[in-house]
Write a protein that binds this DNA or RNA. Sequence first.
DNA 1: CACACGTGGGA
DNA 2: TTCCCAAGTGT
Length: 356
Amino acid sequence: MSSSKLLSWYDINAREMPWRIPPHESKSGKKPDPYKIWLSEIMLQQTTVATVKSYFIKFITLWPTIFDLAKANDNDVMAAWAGLGYYARARNLLKCSRIIVTDFEGVFPTSLKELQMLPGVGPYTSAAIAAIAFNLSETVMDGNVERVMARIYAIKKPLPSSKPELYEGAKKITPKQRPGDFAQAVMDLGSTVCLPRNPKCHICPWETNCLANQNDIAEKLPIKLKKPPKPMRYGIIYVVNREDGAWLLERRETKGLLGGMLGWPTSEWSEKATEDAPITTKWVTSTQSVHHIFTHFKLNLIVKIACSPTHVKPKSNKFNFQSDFVISDLPKLMQKVFAVALIEIKKNPALKKAGQ
DNA sequence: CACACGTGGGA
DNA sequence: TTCCCAAGTGT
Protein backbone atom coordinates (compact mmCIF):
# COMPACT_ATOMS: atom_id res chain seq x y z
CA MET A 1 0.00 0.00 0.00
CA SER A 2 1.67 3.23 -1.05
CA SER A 3 0.72 6.66 0.15
CA SER A 4 2.27 8.20 -2.97
CA LYS A 5 -0.29 6.46 -5.18
CA LEU A 6 -3.08 8.07 -3.17
CA LEU A 7 -1.35 11.47 -3.11
CA SER A 8 -1.04 11.39 -6.92
CA TRP A 9 -4.76 10.68 -7.10
CA TYR A 10 -5.43 13.53 -4.66
CA ASP A 11 -3.34 15.96 -6.75
CA ILE A 12 -5.90 15.56 -9.51
CA ASN A 13 -9.11 14.75 -7.64
CA ALA A 14 -9.00 16.83 -4.43
CA ARG A 15 -12.42 18.24 -3.58
CA GLU A 16 -12.68 21.98 -3.28
CA MET A 17 -13.45 23.37 0.14
CA PRO A 18 -13.36 26.96 1.41
CA TRP A 19 -10.96 26.07 4.25
CA ARG A 20 -8.69 23.85 2.21
CA ILE A 21 -5.32 24.66 0.59
CA PRO A 22 -5.49 22.79 -2.73
CA PRO A 23 -2.67 20.28 -3.33
CA HIS A 24 -0.72 22.32 -5.89
CA GLU A 25 -0.55 25.29 -3.49
CA SER A 26 0.08 23.01 -0.53
CA LYS A 27 3.08 21.47 -2.28
CA SER A 28 4.54 24.89 -2.98
CA GLY A 29 4.46 25.62 0.72
CA LYS A 30 1.26 27.57 1.30
CA LYS A 31 0.12 27.12 4.89
CA PRO A 32 -3.47 26.86 6.05
CA ASP A 33 -4.88 29.14 8.77
CA PRO A 34 -5.09 26.94 11.90
CA TYR A 35 -8.17 28.90 13.01
CA LYS A 36 -9.98 27.95 9.81
CA ILE A 37 -8.87 24.32 10.01
CA TRP A 38 -10.04 24.08 13.61
CA LEU A 39 -13.37 25.77 12.84
CA SER A 40 -14.01 23.57 9.81
CA GLU A 41 -13.09 20.39 11.68
CA ILE A 42 -15.48 21.19 14.52
CA MET A 43 -18.26 21.87 12.00
CA LEU A 44 -17.45 18.69 10.07
CA GLN A 45 -17.94 16.43 13.10
CA GLN A 46 -20.77 14.11 12.01
CA THR A 47 -21.75 16.66 9.37
CA THR A 48 -21.34 16.62 5.60
CA VAL A 49 -19.08 18.98 3.65
CA ALA A 50 -22.09 20.20 1.64
CA THR A 51 -23.90 21.25 4.81
CA VAL A 52 -20.87 22.85 6.43
CA LYS A 53 -19.80 25.11 3.55
CA SER A 54 -22.30 27.94 4.00
CA TYR A 55 -21.96 27.89 7.80
CA PHE A 56 -18.18 28.08 7.52
CA ILE A 57 -18.36 31.09 5.21
CA LYS A 58 -20.86 32.79 7.52
CA PHE A 59 -18.61 32.27 10.56
CA ILE A 60 -15.46 33.44 8.79
CA THR A 61 -17.30 36.52 7.55
CA LEU A 62 -18.69 37.39 10.99
CA TRP A 63 -15.55 36.39 12.93
CA PRO A 64 -12.46 36.38 10.66
CA THR A 65 -9.99 35.56 13.43
CA ILE A 66 -10.03 33.67 16.70
CA PHE A 67 -9.79 37.01 18.50
CA ASP A 68 -13.06 38.11 16.90
CA LEU A 69 -14.75 34.86 17.83
CA ALA A 70 -13.45 34.92 21.39
CA LYS A 71 -15.05 38.30 22.05
CA ALA A 72 -18.30 37.52 20.24
CA ASN A 73 -21.64 37.57 22.00
CA ASP A 74 -22.63 34.01 22.97
CA ASN A 75 -26.19 34.31 21.68
CA ASP A 76 -24.96 35.62 18.32
CA VAL A 77 -22.73 32.57 17.92
CA MET A 78 -25.51 30.17 18.91
CA ALA A 79 -27.82 31.91 16.41
CA ALA A 80 -25.23 31.59 13.65
CA TRP A 81 -24.87 27.88 14.46
CA ALA A 82 -28.65 27.33 14.45
CA GLY A 83 -29.64 24.55 12.06
CA LEU A 84 -26.26 22.85 12.05
CA GLY A 85 -27.08 20.60 15.00
CA TYR A 86 -25.04 19.16 17.87
CA TYR A 87 -25.11 22.48 19.66
CA ALA A 88 -22.56 21.47 22.27
CA ARG A 89 -20.09 22.05 19.46
CA ALA A 90 -20.99 25.73 19.35
CA ARG A 91 -20.75 26.09 23.12
CA ASN A 92 -17.35 24.38 23.09
CA LEU A 93 -16.30 26.48 20.11
CA LEU A 94 -16.72 29.62 22.20
CA LYS A 95 -15.02 28.12 25.25
CA CYS A 96 -12.12 26.92 23.13
CA SER A 97 -11.64 30.26 21.35
CA ARG A 98 -11.41 32.02 24.71
CA ILE A 99 -8.87 29.53 26.04
CA ILE A 100 -6.73 29.97 22.92
CA VAL A 101 -6.84 33.75 23.25
CA THR A 102 -6.30 34.02 27.01
CA ASP A 103 -3.94 31.07 27.60
CA PHE A 104 -2.17 30.73 24.23
CA GLU A 105 -2.07 34.33 22.96
CA GLY A 106 -4.32 33.32 20.05
CA VAL A 107 -1.96 30.64 18.74
CA PHE A 108 -3.08 27.00 18.56
CA PRO A 109 -0.78 24.43 20.17
CA THR A 110 0.56 21.75 17.83
CA SER A 111 0.86 18.67 20.03
CA LEU A 112 -1.94 16.12 20.22
CA LYS A 113 -1.79 16.22 24.00
CA GLU A 114 -2.33 19.98 24.23
CA LEU A 115 -4.91 20.02 21.46
CA GLN A 116 -6.95 17.31 23.17
CA MET A 117 -7.18 19.39 26.32
CA LEU A 118 -9.27 21.93 24.39
CA PRO A 119 -13.07 21.58 24.68
CA GLY A 120 -14.60 19.93 21.62
CA VAL A 121 -11.24 18.60 20.42
CA GLY A 122 -10.87 14.84 20.73
CA PRO A 123 -8.69 12.14 19.13
CA TYR A 124 -9.88 12.80 15.58
CA THR A 125 -9.88 16.61 15.60
CA SER A 126 -6.52 16.91 17.36
CA ALA A 127 -4.89 14.70 14.74
CA ALA A 128 -6.67 16.54 11.93
CA ILE A 129 -5.44 19.92 13.18
CA ALA A 130 -1.89 18.66 13.71
CA ALA A 131 -1.76 17.02 10.27
CA ILE A 132 -3.68 19.53 8.16
CA ALA A 133 -2.83 22.84 9.84
CA PHE A 134 0.75 22.02 10.93
CA ASN A 135 1.69 19.26 8.48
CA LEU A 136 2.74 16.91 11.26
CA SER A 137 2.71 13.18 10.62
CA GLU A 138 -0.30 12.30 12.75
CA THR A 139 -2.90 9.66 11.92
CA VAL A 140 -6.50 10.79 11.55
CA MET A 141 -9.28 8.28 12.13
CA ASP A 142 -12.83 9.15 11.14
CA GLY A 143 -15.63 7.15 9.57
CA ASN A 144 -14.05 7.41 6.12
CA VAL A 145 -10.64 6.24 7.26
CA GLU A 146 -12.22 3.36 9.19
CA ARG A 147 -14.03 2.18 6.09
CA VAL A 148 -11.01 2.52 3.79
CA MET A 149 -8.75 0.68 6.24
CA ALA A 150 -11.28 -2.08 6.85
CA ARG A 151 -11.32 -2.67 3.10
CA ILE A 152 -7.69 -2.41 2.06
CA TYR A 153 -6.70 -4.75 4.91
CA ALA A 154 -9.93 -6.79 4.66
CA ILE A 155 -10.60 -6.53 8.38
CA LYS A 156 -13.71 -8.56 9.09
CA LYS A 157 -13.97 -7.94 12.80
CA PRO A 158 -17.05 -5.68 13.30
CA LEU A 159 -16.89 -2.07 14.47
CA PRO A 160 -16.41 -0.65 17.03
CA SER A 161 -14.19 -3.39 18.49
CA SER A 162 -11.99 -3.32 15.39
CA LYS A 163 -11.00 0.32 15.89
CA PRO A 164 -7.54 -0.34 17.36
CA GLU A 165 -6.72 -2.61 14.45
CA LEU A 166 -8.01 -0.05 11.93
CA TYR A 167 -5.95 2.66 13.60
CA GLU A 168 -2.78 0.58 13.41
CA GLY A 169 -3.46 0.02 9.72
CA ALA A 170 -3.85 3.74 9.14
CA LYS A 171 -0.80 4.58 11.21
CA LYS A 172 1.32 2.16 9.21
CA ILE A 173 0.68 4.03 5.96
CA THR A 174 0.70 7.61 7.29
CA PRO A 175 3.60 9.25 5.42
CA LYS A 176 6.24 11.65 6.73
CA GLN A 177 5.86 13.68 3.54
CA ARG A 178 2.63 15.62 3.02
CA PRO A 179 0.79 14.08 5.99
CA GLY A 180 -1.85 16.82 5.85
CA ASP A 181 -2.65 16.16 2.20
CA PHE A 182 -2.60 12.42 2.92
CA ALA A 183 -5.17 12.78 5.70
CA GLN A 184 -7.46 14.78 3.46
CA ALA A 185 -6.84 12.40 0.55
CA VAL A 186 -8.02 9.34 2.51
CA MET A 187 -11.15 11.22 3.56
CA ASP A 188 -11.81 12.42 -0.01
CA LEU A 189 -11.34 8.85 -1.20
CA GLY A 190 -13.83 7.62 1.38
CA SER A 191 -16.41 10.24 0.47
CA THR A 192 -16.18 9.98 -3.32
CA VAL A 193 -14.82 6.52 -4.23
CA CYS A 194 -14.68 4.12 -1.31
CA LEU A 195 -18.37 4.67 -0.59
CA PRO A 196 -20.36 2.74 2.04
CA ARG A 197 -22.58 1.29 -0.67
CA ASN A 198 -21.61 0.74 -4.30
CA PRO A 199 -17.93 1.55 -3.87
CA LYS A 200 -16.29 2.62 -7.14
CA CYS A 201 -13.39 0.20 -6.95
CA HIS A 202 -12.76 0.44 -10.70
CA ILE A 203 -11.58 4.06 -10.37
CA CYS A 204 -9.79 3.66 -7.04
CA PRO A 205 -6.05 4.35 -6.93
CA TRP A 206 -5.70 1.41 -4.55
CA GLU A 207 -7.82 -0.93 -6.67
CA THR A 208 -5.06 -3.48 -7.14
CA ASN A 209 -3.75 -3.20 -3.57
CA CYS A 210 -7.05 -3.53 -1.75
CA LEU A 211 -7.56 -6.95 -0.15
CA ALA A 212 -11.33 -6.51 0.03
CA ASN A 213 -11.50 -5.66 -3.65
CA GLN A 214 -9.29 -8.64 -4.50
CA ASN A 215 -11.79 -10.84 -2.67
CA ASP A 216 -14.79 -8.94 -4.01
CA ILE A 217 -16.06 -8.13 -0.52
CA ALA A 218 -15.46 -4.35 -0.44
CA GLU A 219 -19.14 -3.51 -0.14
CA LYS A 220 -19.55 -5.87 2.82
CA LEU A 221 -16.91 -4.03 4.87
CA PRO A 222 -16.68 -2.69 7.45
CA ILE A 223 -19.10 -4.91 9.32
CA LYS A 224 -21.26 -2.94 11.73
CA LEU A 225 -23.75 -4.09 14.32
CA LYS A 226 -27.37 -3.12 13.72
CA LYS A 227 -28.67 -0.16 15.62
CA PRO A 228 -31.63 -0.50 17.99
CA PRO A 229 -34.87 1.25 16.89
CA LYS A 230 -35.51 4.80 18.09
CA PRO A 231 -38.23 5.12 20.75
CA MET A 232 -41.09 7.59 20.23
CA ARG A 233 -41.62 10.60 22.50
CA TYR A 234 -44.56 13.01 22.65
CA GLY A 235 -45.10 16.54 23.87
CA ILE A 236 -46.99 19.81 23.49
CA ILE A 237 -45.29 22.98 22.31
CA TYR A 238 -46.73 26.47 22.62
CA VAL A 239 -46.45 29.39 20.19
CA VAL A 240 -47.67 32.70 21.61
CA ASN A 241 -47.91 35.86 19.55
CA ARG A 242 -48.47 39.04 21.55
CA GLU A 243 -50.71 41.80 20.21
CA ASP A 244 -47.70 44.04 19.60
CA GLY A 245 -46.10 41.34 17.43
CA ALA A 246 -43.57 39.91 19.90
CA TRP A 247 -43.25 36.12 20.28
CA LEU A 248 -42.87 34.10 23.49
CA LEU A 249 -39.53 32.28 23.54
CA GLU A 250 -37.12 30.77 26.02
CA ARG A 251 -33.37 30.40 26.10
CA ARG A 252 -32.97 26.67 26.73
CA GLU A 253 -30.72 25.41 29.52
CA THR A 254 -27.06 25.26 28.63
CA LYS A 255 -26.82 21.50 28.94
CA GLY A 256 -28.80 18.82 27.17
CA LEU A 257 -30.81 18.71 23.98
CA LEU A 258 -30.71 21.94 21.94
CA GLY A 259 -28.85 23.42 24.91
CA GLY A 260 -28.28 27.16 24.82
CA MET A 261 -30.62 27.65 21.87
CA LEU A 262 -33.80 29.71 21.59
CA GLY A 263 -37.02 27.72 21.48
CA TRP A 264 -40.76 27.80 22.00
CA PRO A 265 -42.03 26.93 25.48
CA THR A 266 -42.69 23.21 25.56
CA SER A 267 -43.86 20.44 27.85
CA GLU A 268 -41.48 17.60 28.63
CA TRP A 269 -41.03 15.06 25.87
CA SER A 270 -41.93 11.58 27.09
CA GLU A 271 -44.13 8.55 26.43
CA LYS A 272 -47.22 10.72 26.88
CA ALA A 273 -47.98 14.35 25.97
CA THR A 274 -48.79 16.37 29.09
CA GLU A 275 -49.98 19.99 29.24
CA ASP A 276 -47.52 22.57 30.57
CA ALA A 277 -48.70 25.88 29.13
CA PRO A 278 -46.51 28.97 29.68
CA ILE A 279 -49.52 31.30 30.10
CA THR A 280 -53.20 30.89 30.92
CA THR A 281 -55.19 31.57 27.79
CA LYS A 282 -57.46 30.06 25.18
CA TRP A 283 -55.32 27.78 22.97
CA VAL A 284 -55.95 26.78 19.38
CA THR A 285 -54.59 23.33 18.57
CA SER A 286 -53.06 23.03 15.13
CA THR A 287 -54.46 20.37 12.82
CA GLN A 288 -50.88 19.41 11.95
CA SER A 289 -48.40 18.04 14.47
CA VAL A 290 -44.63 18.29 14.09
CA HIS A 291 -42.53 15.18 13.58
CA HIS A 292 -38.80 15.31 14.13
CA ILE A 293 -36.07 12.68 14.30
CA PHE A 294 -33.17 13.09 16.70
CA THR A 295 -30.16 10.80 17.02
CA HIS A 296 -31.68 8.63 19.71
CA PHE A 297 -35.47 9.16 19.58
CA LYS A 298 -38.34 10.28 17.41
CA LEU A 299 -40.52 13.14 18.51
CA ASN A 300 -44.09 14.12 17.81
CA LEU A 301 -45.26 17.50 19.08
CA ILE A 302 -48.78 18.89 19.25
CA VAL A 303 -48.62 22.60 18.42
CA LYS A 304 -50.84 24.96 20.39
CA ILE A 305 -51.15 28.60 19.41
CA ALA A 306 -52.47 31.69 21.16
CA CYS A 307 -52.62 35.44 20.71
CA SER A 308 -52.08 37.25 23.99
CA PRO A 309 -52.75 40.80 25.18
CA THR A 310 -49.68 42.96 25.79
CA HIS A 311 -49.98 42.93 29.59
CA VAL A 312 -49.79 39.11 29.96
CA LYS A 313 -46.96 37.77 32.13
CA PRO A 314 -45.72 34.19 31.59
CA LYS A 315 -45.95 31.68 34.44
CA SER A 316 -42.18 31.34 34.59
CA ASN A 317 -39.52 34.01 34.17
CA LYS A 318 -37.56 31.71 31.87
CA PHE A 319 -39.96 32.75 29.12
CA ASN A 320 -39.56 36.11 27.38
CA PHE A 321 -41.43 37.97 24.70
CA GLN A 322 -39.04 38.85 21.90
CA SER A 323 -39.59 40.92 18.80
CA ASP A 324 -35.94 41.04 17.73
CA PHE A 325 -35.32 37.53 16.50
CA VAL A 326 -35.32 35.89 13.09
CA ILE A 327 -36.60 32.38 12.56
CA SER A 328 -33.20 31.18 11.32
CA ASP A 329 -31.82 31.82 14.84
CA LEU A 330 -33.77 28.77 16.02
CA PRO A 331 -32.95 25.06 15.70
CA LYS A 332 -34.69 23.27 12.84
CA LEU A 333 -37.23 21.62 15.12
CA MET A 334 -38.35 25.04 16.37
CA GLN A 335 -38.45 26.36 12.79
CA LYS A 336 -40.77 23.49 11.86
CA VAL A 337 -43.03 24.32 14.81
CA PHE A 338 -43.18 27.96 13.73
CA ALA A 339 -44.10 27.00 10.15
CA VAL A 340 -47.01 24.90 11.42
CA ALA A 341 -48.11 27.71 13.74
CA LEU A 342 -48.07 30.25 10.90
CA ILE A 343 -50.29 28.03 8.77
CA GLU A 344 -52.79 27.85 11.62
CA ILE A 345 -52.62 31.59 12.27
CA LYS A 346 -53.28 32.27 8.60
CA LYS A 347 -56.36 30.01 8.68
CA ASN A 348 -57.78 31.15 12.01
CA PRO A 349 -59.11 34.75 12.28
CA ALA A 350 -59.15 34.54 16.10
CA LEU A 351 -55.33 34.33 16.09
CA LYS A 352 -54.85 37.26 13.74
CA LYS A 353 -54.08 40.56 15.34
CA ALA A 354 -51.60 43.40 15.12
CA GLY A 355 -51.19 43.08 11.40
CA GLN A 356 -50.00 39.46 11.46
C1' DC B 1 -18.15 1.46 27.74
C1' DA B 2 -22.78 3.08 26.64
C1' DC B 3 -25.33 6.63 25.78
C1' DA B 4 -26.57 11.62 24.69
C1' DC B 5 -26.26 14.73 21.22
C1' DG B 6 -29.13 17.38 15.19
C1' DT B 7 -29.93 17.30 10.78
C1' DG B 8 -30.25 16.20 5.85
C1' DG B 9 -29.65 13.27 1.96
C1' DG B 10 -29.51 8.94 -0.55
C1' DA B 11 -31.04 4.16 -1.53
C1' DT C 1 -41.41 4.67 5.05
C1' DT C 2 -37.33 3.18 6.91
C1' DC C 3 -32.70 2.73 7.37
C1' DC C 4 -28.01 4.15 7.04
C1' DC C 5 -24.65 7.40 6.95
C1' DA C 6 -21.74 12.04 7.76
C1' DA C 7 -14.24 14.99 8.71
C1' DG C 8 -16.87 12.68 16.86
C1' DT C 9 -16.87 14.43 21.63
C1' DG C 10 -18.27 14.52 26.43
C1' DT C 11 -19.85 12.21 30.35
